[in-house]
Design a protein around this nucleic acid. Sequence first.
DNA 1: AATATTTTTAGAATAGTTCTAAATTACTAT
DNA 2: ATAGTAATTTAGAACTATTCTAAAAATATT
Lengths: 144, 144
Amino acid sequence: MKYKPSYRASLSTEEIQAKLQAAGVQPTLQRIAICKYVLCEADHPTAEQVKEWAEENLEKISQATVYNTLNTLVEAKLLRIFKFPHSEKVIYDNNIHNHYHFLDESSGNLYDIETKDVSINMEIPSKFTVNSMEVVFKGQIKAT
Amino acid sequence: MKYKPSYRASLSTEEIQAKLQAAGVQPTLQRIAICKYVLCEADHPTAEQVKEWAEENLEKISQATVYNTLNTLVEAKLLRIFKFPHSEKVIYDNNIHNHYHFLDESSGNLYDIETKDVSINMEIPSKFTVNSMEVVFKGQIKAT
DNA sequence: AATATTTTTAGAATAGTTCTAAATTACTAT
DNA sequence: ATAGTAATTTAGAACTATTCTAAAAATATT
């Protein structure tokens, strides 16, 4: 089986613009720029990393706008937000479908694991109704 | 199958004292008191809840001591620390064995799920070596 | 009992994120 | 195009959970 890394779209400015509009979000300069990073380039970035990228690629951007935009994108379901035990910081994921994660404990890198590659059977009392589950595998990844 | 809730020990002051000593931790007044709560009474408490309990049950205790003590107990492996996506706050768990959690999304309550009640089969690329996994089921729990 | 070590404490500091309210930008209806 | 309204951006303050600092208190060791 070939490992499929987290999704990296290659989107033009126009496509991003359309995506934002379709989601009911005004495609401002800052939002389009941040989308270019978080939807295409980045891999599980933190808000800090988004800010750093934005500072290098935009005239000027404020911390608040970075957070506002990321929150807006999460609300618009273009991005998912995760928080893992190993870090204080929230991370953003452009894979918006259900999936699990693998944490490489040596590097701190996160990898998406498709739900179809994992089968989970539970035998817990019927009073628990499970709607969803969060799974984080931890371990090492061999360098290839 | 009967549901086994998270472990609630009933420990005397002497037993707690012995436990601390065995773990190489000086059994101070504050530590014994906090153990009474976190090892016997509490169910997945936050540091804040431990502080509140301590303020009601001790002459005086500082915030720093609560955190220091909880960290000491975690290091001594008498307690486990968890951080979940649904809350900013860390929670402490007196179930020190491997287990998963169920989050009741209505109440925010956490329940321990024994690993033996869940079977997980993975088919992920061999370059991933899984050492451990964190699982949080989310859903509703029926009132009984 | 004297000294050394450990623990506790109050309050300052820190990190990540959100809030506030003013300034700017973008839409809307003429 | 233009005035008016609404939405967005911004700097900086505020907030929350936790850790740090360094002095005081308690405990252990000699």
